[in-house]
Simulated assay, not measured.
Amino acid sequence: MRPWLYNTLYRLGIAPWDTGVRPHLTDLVDAGRIRPEDGRRVLDLGCGTGSESVYLAQRGFEVVGVDYSGVALERARALARSKGVSGNCRFLHGDISSYPVPGVSGSFDVILDFGALDDMTGAPREGMARVVHRYARPGTVFVLWCFHARREDVPRFRFAGVSKMHSMLEPGEEETLFGREFTIERLDSPEHTACFVMTKK
């Protein structure tokens, strides 16, 4: 998809992925697996309207969110202001498939991706994986949520859920992209989706 399409979906309020804070993230925070005492710097790749970024900022993290939809970023900044955490959130316009991302420097303790990597194919997908590698350090926790299935196992089209109209990670692709430098744990997720918690070695 293109930025103009994302902007249109956000402007109309019909972006299907814009559903608030993802339960996998809240579960990880509630379980103490992601906590500011272990490192406060968070990079939210494809941050959208900022739900996850603001949620973590409210819990003491320092968050940098990056997206290429200007409409989404305006809403993310407004959300941070409304929750009183603008000082803990920076939202940047940028291409997350190319390193370095303008305005983003150093390494991060937590990196988030809820549905950006799987929306890319080919060179951009490989480029975004390199972005994750370059901004990670030993001990960095990378949370990746994605559509995850063999293309032949999903229907050609359906109104709700994954179909061949979506791009997705094929099983094993997470190992190809990240397995050499991250340990990978898969959390329970609905059919044809996956949430991975990866830790930089």
Rank of each mutant, 00 (worst) to 15 (best):
V71Y: 00
V71T: 03
R81S: 10
K200A: 14
H148D: 15
V85I: 01
L5V: 15
G127Q: 12
F142Q: 00
A57C: 07
A80F: 00
F108A: 06
G172S: 08
M120H: 12
G103D: 06
S53Y: 02
C195W: 09
V131E: 05
A149N: 12
R40S: 11
F114M: 07
L79K: 01
V54P: 03
S105C: 05
W4K: 07
S167P: 04
S69I: 08
C146R: 02
A136T: 08
R130H: 13
E173W: 11
H24S: 14
G103A: 05
E173V: 15
F159S: 14
A15C: 08
I14K: 08
E170Q: 14
A15K: 14
F114H: 07
P171F: 12
K200P: 10
A78I: 08
R130N: 15
L45A: 11
P36I: 05
Q58T: 12
D44T: 02
L144N: 06
V154Y: 09
A123N: 11
R81I: 01
R2W: 14
G172R: 03
D44L: 03
D67W: 00
E62G: 00
V29H: 05
I34N: 10
F159E: 14
M120W: 11
V42S: 06
V143G: 01
E170F: 13
G127K: 15
F61Y: 04
R156A: 10
P23L: 11
L56T: 03
T183Q: 11
E170K: 14
A160I: 14
Y6H: 09
L5I: 15
L56Y: 03
M128A: 14
S53H: 03
A15T: 08
C89A: 00
H166E: 13
Q58P: 04
S53Q: 04
G172F: 06
L9D: 09
E181C: 07
S189V: 12
E173M: 10
R33Q: 10
W145F: 14
Q58N: 13
A57W: 07
L25M: 04
A160Q: 10
P171V: 10
L56G: 04
T19H: 11
G84W: 00
D119F: 04
V131S: 05
T183F: 08
R33W: 09
R41H: 05
L177D: 06
P102T: 05
G94S: 02
S82N: 13
D119N: 12
G127A: 09
L117C: 10
H148L: 11
S53W: 01
G139W: 02
Y6Q: 08
R22L: 09
C146L: 04
E185V: 13
R150P: 14
P23G: 06
G122M: 01
S69F: 10
D30H: 05
Y6D: 06
R77W: 05
A31M: 02
E37Y: 11
D188V: 13
Y6T: 06
V162I: 15
R11S: 13
S163E: 12
R134C: 15
A136V: 04
C146N: 03
R137E: 05
A129V: 09
V66E: 02
S107A: 12
